[in-house]
C-alpha cells in the first residue's frame, strides 16, 4: 500500500507539471500583465510601469520567463507576490489553514448530512419524508453557490437580527473567521466563536454537494438493502437499525467514497465564491485577486496548492476505499 501511494505521488509529479505549465501559458496569453494593476492608476506614471515591467522580467521572451519560473519552482521557491510584495510562502501560510478549515468542515458536513439523509430516505423509501427530502435536495442542488451564500446571509445574518423573537441560536455572523472581540474570549469562547463563523459558509459550500451525496447514498443504500447478505443478517436476528448501520452502510459507502475524490475540486472551486461572499480570508479570495491582478507567481503557487490538494484528496479516497472494502488491495 505504501509503495502504491508513493508511486501514485510520483505519477502526480508530471501531472502537476503539465497542469502548471498549462496555467502558466494561459495566464500569459491573457491580456495584460502584472504591471496592469498600475495601468489605470492616475497616481502612477508611465515610466514607473515600464520600470516595474523590466524589474519583474516581463519584457523577457516567454520561454525565458517560463524557464526561470520552472527552475525556481522546482527548487521550492514560490517567489514573491508582485501585487502584495510579500513572499508567497508567507501568503500561503496565512491562507491555506483558513481554506482547509472551511473546505474540511464542508466536506465533513457534506458526508455527515448527505449520508444521514440518504440513509433515512432509503429506509423510508417513498414515504412523505423521502419525497420531501428528494425535492429539497433537488432544489438546493440546483441553487448556485454564490446565490445560496447571499440568501443565507440575508436570512440568517440580516433578517434574523431584524426580527424580534428569532431564536438567538439561528443568528449568525455574515463574514470573517472571528468576531471583533475574539481576542478577549476564553478558550471555549474562542472555539465557539470560530464555529459560529464557520457554520454559514461551510453550509453554503457544502449543502449542494450534501444534497447530491444524499441522492447517491439513497440509491446505493436501496441497492445494498436488496442484497442477500442483508437478508442473512436479518435471518441471524440482527436488529433492524444494526442491519442498516453495520451491514448495509459500510457497503453502501463504497461508491460514495469515490465521490470524495470527485468533490474536492468542486469544493475548492466553490470555496472561491463562498470565501468572497463571506469575506473568508482563504485561498479562494487570494486566487481570484491573483488572477485579476495577473500576479503570475501567486497564480502559479495557488494553482499548485489547489492541484496538490486535489491529488491528495484522491489519494485519500483511495486509501479510504481500501480501508472500507477489504476486497481492494493496492499493490
Amino acid at each position: 500500500m505504501t509503495s502504491y501511494l508513493l508511486r501514485r505521488l510520483l505519477y502526480a509529479v508530471p501531472l502537476l507539471w503539465g497542469i502548471l505549465t498549462l496555467v502558466f501559458f494561459i495566464m500569459h496569453a491573457a491580456p495584460g500583465d502584472p504591471s496592469a494593476m498600475y495601468l489605470l492608476n492616475p497616481n502612477v506614471s508611465q515610466e514607473v510601469v515600464e520600470q516595474i515591467r523590466s524589474n519583474w522580467g516581463l519584457d523577457e521572451p516567454l520561454a525565458v520567463q517560463y524557464w526561470s519560473w520552472l527552475v525556481n519552482f522546482a527548487s521550492g521557491d514560490f517567489g514573491l507576490s508582485l501585487a502584495q510584495q510579500r513572499p508567497i510562502s508567507a501568503i500561503l501560510a496565512d491562507r491555506i489553514p483558513n481554506t482547509l478549515l472551511l473546505s474540511g468542515t464542508a466536506l465533513v458536513l457534506i458526508f455527515l448530512i448527505g449520508i444521514a439523509l440518504g440513509v433515512i430516505q432509503a429506509v423510508r423509501q417513498y414515504s412523505t419524508l423521502d419525497n420531501v427530502l428528494t425535492f429539497g435536495a433537488l432544489l438546493i442542488y440546483s441553487m448556485p453557490t454564490f446565490w445560496l451564500g447571499l440568501m443565507l446571509i440575508l436570512i440568517f445574518a440580516h433578517l434574523s437580527y431584524q426580527i424580534d423573537g428569532w431564536p438567538e441560536l439561528l443568528r449568525f455572523p455574515a463574514s470573517g473567521t472571528t468576531s471583533i472581540q475574539y481576542d478577549m474570549l476564553g478558550f471555549f469562547g474562542k472555539l465557539g466563536d470560530r464555529i459560529h463563523h464557520l457554520i454559514l459558509p461551510a453550509f453554503a459550500l457544502g449543502v449542494g454537494s450534501a444534497a447530491s451525496v444524499a441522492r447517491y447514498t439513497r440509491s446505493s443504500m436501496l441497492e445494498v438493502i436488496r442484497q442477500d447478505y442483508i437478508r442473512t443478517a436479518r435471518a441471524k436476528g440482527v436488529p433492524g437499525h444494526r442491519v442498516i448501520m453495520k451491514h448495509a452502510l459500510r457497503n453502501a459507502m463504497l461508491p460514495i467514497i469515490t465521490l470524495l475524490g470527485l468533490y474536492l475540486p468542486f469544493l475548492l472551486s466553490g470555496s472561491v465564491l463562498v470565501e468572497y461572499v463571506f469575506a473568508w480570508p482563504g485561498m479562494g479570495d487570494t486566487i481570484i485577486k491573483a488572477i485579476l491582478q495577473r500576479d503570475y507567481p501567486l497564480v502559479m503557487a495557488t494553482s499548485f496548492v489547489f492541484a496538490v490538494m486535489v491529488v491528495i484528496g484522491n489519494l485519500l479516497a483511495d486509501v479510504l476505499y481500501a480501508v472500507v472494502d477489504p476486497r481492494i488491495r493496492y499493490e
Binding site: 440580516h158 437580527y161 443568528r171 455574515a174 471583533i180 468572497y276 461572499v277 463571506f278
Partner: peptide, 20 residues
C-alpha cells in the same frame, strides 16, 4: 479601530445592520 475587509456589498450591508 478595526479595519475589516468584506468584498461583497450584500455581506457588508448585513454586517452593518447587525451591528458588527
Amino acid at each position: 479601530l478595526v479595519y475589516r475587509i468584506i468584498p461583497e456589498p450584500t455581506t457588508m450591508l448585513a454586517e452593518l445592520m447587525s451591528g458588527e
